[in-house]
Design a binder for these strands. Structure first.
Length: 512
RNA sequence: GCUCCGGUAGUAUAGUCCGGUCAAGUAUUCCGGCCUUUCGAGCCGGAGACGCGGGUCCGAAUCCCGCCCGGAGCACCA
C-alpha cells in the first residue's frame, strides 16, 4: 500500500551515485582518445602525480581510448634519470590500476628528434644559435633577432653537423625554434630545442655516451605528442607557456595541436610533495626509504594500507580544475575506511599493555570472536579463559589508555567475554573481580567495552605510525596467521597493514 | 616587475559559458540522536560557504568595472 504510493522510496535504497569526470573537450572529433603520462624517471612518484596519472588513465578508459606511459629522460645533466625509477614508476602505475597500453622511452627516440630538427632547420624554421646566453637574452628582450637567426638554412645545417660532431662544447651552441620575436611573453620567443651536453661528464644512465646533443622538453614532448597520436594532453598548469611555445613548432610542421587541459597543483596538508625535498630527506637520512610513512609517495601509501581505489576516488572527486587544491588527509582516510571496513578482518591489539588480574571467575569461558561481525562465514578465533584452580584468577593484557574508564568500583566489559568490577587501578596494573557474564547487563549498567588479550595467547606487536613513531603492544595470538600485506582493523585502534610476521608483528598504521 | 591562471562551508566539489527553479546541492569534517559487543560502520537530524567594493537589472554565485588574496611561468629543467 505504502509501497504503491511512493514506489521510489523502495526502489534500491539510495544509490550513492559515483561522481564522474566532466567530458573531455572535443572528444567527438577524434576516432580514438589518446592520453599520456610522461614522468621524468628522476624520482619516486608521489601523490602529486596522482592527478596526471588517474585523469589520463580514467579518461582513456571512459572513451575506450589509449593510455600511454612515456619516460621523459632527455636530461642527463640537471634532472638526471635514475635507472631504478623506471621500474618503480611502472610498479606504481600497476598498483594504481592504471596500467599503460603502450610505453615509450624518449632516450630511445633521439634519431626521431634529430630528423625533425633537421627538417625545421632546412625549412628555415629553426636555427643553431651560438650566442652567449647573456647576449641572446638582451637581444630577445629587445625583440631583436640574434646574428645566428638569419643565417641561411645551408649554414644552419652545417652548424648542426658540427654540433653532432662535437665541435661545439657544452653551452656553445643550441638549436632554437623560431617563434614571434614580438610575442608578449619573452619566454616564448625563439625557445631552445636541443643543446650540447658534456657527455663524458654526464653520460646518460641508459644510453651512455652515444649522443652529445639532447632535446629539451618542448621539442621532445611536442614532437612525441603528435607522433604518438595524443589527442588530449592532461598536465599541470606549469606547462601552460610550453603549450604556447610548442604551438609555433606545430605550425612549422603543419600539425594541429592536441586538446590540452592544464590542472592546478595538488598538495596535501603537511606532506612534502616536492621531488627535491623528498630526495634531500632521503639523502640526509631523515627518511628511512622511499616508503617512509611520513612521505606521500605511492610506495609509502601502499605500505600503510591506503588502497588505490581510495586515491582514485579522491582524484576524480577533485577533477581537472585549474585551481590549486590542498587536500586534507581526512578525505583520503574517509574513502579508504569506507572501502576497508567491510573487507578486512578485525583483531585485538593492546597498545602499551598493562596487566589485568581478574578474580572470582566462576568457570571456564570460551570466547569466540568473529573475524567480522557482519560476515560470520569468515570464521572466528577462540580463546579459552580457564581460571587458576587455586584462586580462580586469570590474567589479561589491557591497554594503558583504557585506565581512564577503570576507576575503582566501575564496571567494565571485556568484549565478547564477561563483565568485571574494578577493585584497584594503578598505572602499571589493574585488579578486578568477575561481575557478571551477559552483555545485556553491561549495557544496562552502561559499562564501557574494552578489548583485551589473554596473557599466554599474546604476540608482541609494534605499529609504525604515520609520523614514523612506534607504538608497542601485544596482539592476540590469532594474528600469527596473518601474512605480509594483509590489512586488518585493530579494534578501537585503527586500520593497519601487516608488514612483517615472525616472532613479532610489525604493522603500519593507515588511519583510525 | 612582466605574462597567464584561479578564488563557493574546516577540506574537496556542483552550479558560473546561456542571470530567476540557488534563501546554494553533494562528500568529508564537527555536534546531537538512534542502532551496534570498537572510540569503527550504518541510519536520522543539525551546524557550516558564494574574497571585497561598486555598477547593470524587477532579479547576480552567475554579466561589467575596480580592488584584495592565492598560484603558475619568465632555464641550454621536466
Amino acid at each position: 500500500m505504502v509501497e504503491e504510493t511512493w514506489p521510489e522510496a523502495f526502489s534500491k535504497e539510495k544509490i550513492e551515485e559515483e561522481k564522474k569526470l566532466p567530458p573531455l573537450p572535443n572528444a567527438d572529433k577524434y576516432a580514438k582518445i589518446v592520453t599520456r603520462f610522461s614522468p621524468n624517471p628522476d624520482c619516486i612518484l608521489h601523490l602529486g602525480s596522482a592527478r596526471a596519472i588517474i585523469l589520463c588513465h580514467e579518461y582513456a578508459r571512459m572513451y575506450k581510448g589509449k593510455f600511454i606511459l612515456r619516460f621523459e629522460d632527455t636530461d642527463p645533466k640537471t634532472k638526471r634519470p635514475v635507472l631504478e625509477f623506471y621500474d618503480r614508476i611502472r610498479e606504481d602505475l600497476t598498483w594504481l590500476e592504471c596500467k599503460p597500453d603502450e610505453e615509450y622511452i624518449q632516450s630511445d627516440r633521439i634519431p626521431v628528434y634529430y630528423e625533425y630538427t633537421e627538417k625545421m632547420l632546412k625549412d628555415g624554421n629553426a636555427y643553431v644559435c651560438t650566442c652567449q646566453p647573456q647576449n641572446f637574452r638582451e637581444k630577445i628582450l629587445a625583440q631583436k633577432p640574434c646574428p645566428c637567426r638569419d643565417l641561411s638554412p645551408e649554414e644552419q645545417l652545417e652548424r648542426w653537423q658540427r654540433m653532432l660532431n662535437g665541435e661545439y662544447k657544452e653551452g656553445e651552441a643550441v638549436v632554437r625554434i623560431k617563434t614571434d620575436l614580438t610575442h608578449p611573453n619573452p619566454a616564448v620567443r625563439d625557445w631552445p630545442a636541443l643543446r650540447v651536453i658534456d657527455i663524458e661528464k654526464f653520460p646518460h644512465p641508459r644510453i651512455g655516451t652515444k649522443y652529445r646533443v639532447w632535446p629539451l622538453y618542448n621539442l621532445a614532448c611536442g614532437l612525441d605528442d603528435h607522433l604518438m597520436g595524443v589527442t588530449h594532453i592532461i598536465r599541470g598548469k606549469e606547462h601552460l607557456t610550453n603549450m604556447v611555445r610548442q604551438e609555433f613548432m606545430y605550425k612549422h610542421l603543419g600539425w594541429k595541436y592536441p586538446e590540452a587541459i592544464h590542472y592546478g597543483r595538488l598538495k596535501i596538508k603537511g606532506a612534502f610533495l616536492s621531488k627535491s625535498k623528498i630526495v634531500q630527506g632521503i639523502r640526509e637520512g631523515l627518511y628511512k626509504g622511499w616508503d617512509d610513512p611520513r612521505l606521500a609517495t605511492f610506495a609509502a601509501l601502499r605500505r600503510r594500507g591506503i588502497t588505490p581505489a581510495a586515491i582514485k576516488k579522491l582524484i576524480i572527486d577533485v577533477g581537472p580544475k585549474t585551481s590549486d587544491v590542498v587536500l586534507s588527509w581526512e578525505n583520503l582516510y574517509a574513502y579508504n575506511r569506507k572501502l576497508l571496513d567491510p573487507k578486512v578482518n578485525r583483531y585485538f591489539f593492546v597498545q602499551y599493555p598493562i596487566q589485568l588480574l581478574v578474580r572470582k571467575i566462576p568457570k571456564t569461558f570460551n570466547a569466540k570472536l568473529r573475524l567480522h561481525p557482519e560476515f560470520p562465514e569468515r570464521g572466528s578465533r577462540e580463546y579459552i579463559v580457564r581460571p587458576m584452580e587455586t584462586d580462580e584468577t586469570a590474567l589479561f593484557w589491557i591497554s594503558k589508555s583504557d585506565l581512564k574508564v577503570l576507576a575503582a568500583g566501575s564496571v567494565v566489559r571485556l568484549m565478547e567475554l564477561f563483565n568485571i568490577k574494578v577493585e584497584n587501578a594503578e598505572s602499571y596494573a589493574v585488579e578486578a573481580s568477575f561481575e557478571s557474564e551477559s552483555y545485556e547487563e553491561a549495557r544496562k549498567a552502561g559499562a564501557p567495552l574494552i578489548h583485551w588479550v589473554l596473557i599466554g595467547a599474546d604476540l608482541p606487536c609494534k605499529v609504525i605510525m604515520p609520523d614514523a613513531t612506534t607504538v608497542e603492544g601485544v596482539a592476540e595470538s590469532a594474528c600469527k596467521k596473518l601474512k605480509q600485506n594483509d590489512v586488518v582493523q585493530f579494534e578501537r585502534f585503527g586500520f593497519v597493514r601487516i608488514d612483517k610476521v615472525n616472532s613479532k608483528i610489525t604493522a603500519y598504521y593507515a588511519h583510525k
